[in-house]
């Protein structure tokens, strides 16, 4: 299961946020602290997670302390499914 969550996230982030459809995001790659997902795109990320997995991420959780990698985000999603 977790593989497919990571795959879906990687694809959607690459397409909708990075606008580089071929970009593959590694599980350990920093997302927020690196600026790969900038502050204007955090809401998009929350929308992607909710639309794809039915899991809500509160706006107070949209920061690198809560999750900064795909791995951590997948864990967060799994814990709430």
């Amino acid at each position: 299961m977790s593989d497919s969550i990571a795959d879906v996230l990687s694809t959607k982030i690459a397409e909708r946020i990075l606008k580089q459809p071929n970009r593959v995001i590694k599980p350990e790659e920093p997302l927020i602290s690196s600026g790969l997902i900038d502050s204007f795109s955090l809401v998009d990320l929350a929308l992607i997670v909710e639309d794809e997995f039915g899991v809500r991420i509160d706006d107070s959780e949209l920061n690198a302390d809560t999750f900064d990698t795909l791995d951590a985000l997948v864990k967060l999603i799994e814990s709430r499914k």
Binding site: L18, Q20, R23, S34, G35, L36, I37, D38, S41
Partner: peptide, 18 residues
């Protein structure tokens, strides 16, 4: 290209995509 994105994003107020 990815390194340019990274360096500019980390060094400025914008998130470079293109």
């Amino acid at each position: 290209a990815n390194e340019i994105r990274r360096v500019v994003t980390r060094g400025s107020a914008v998130a470079l995509r293109h």
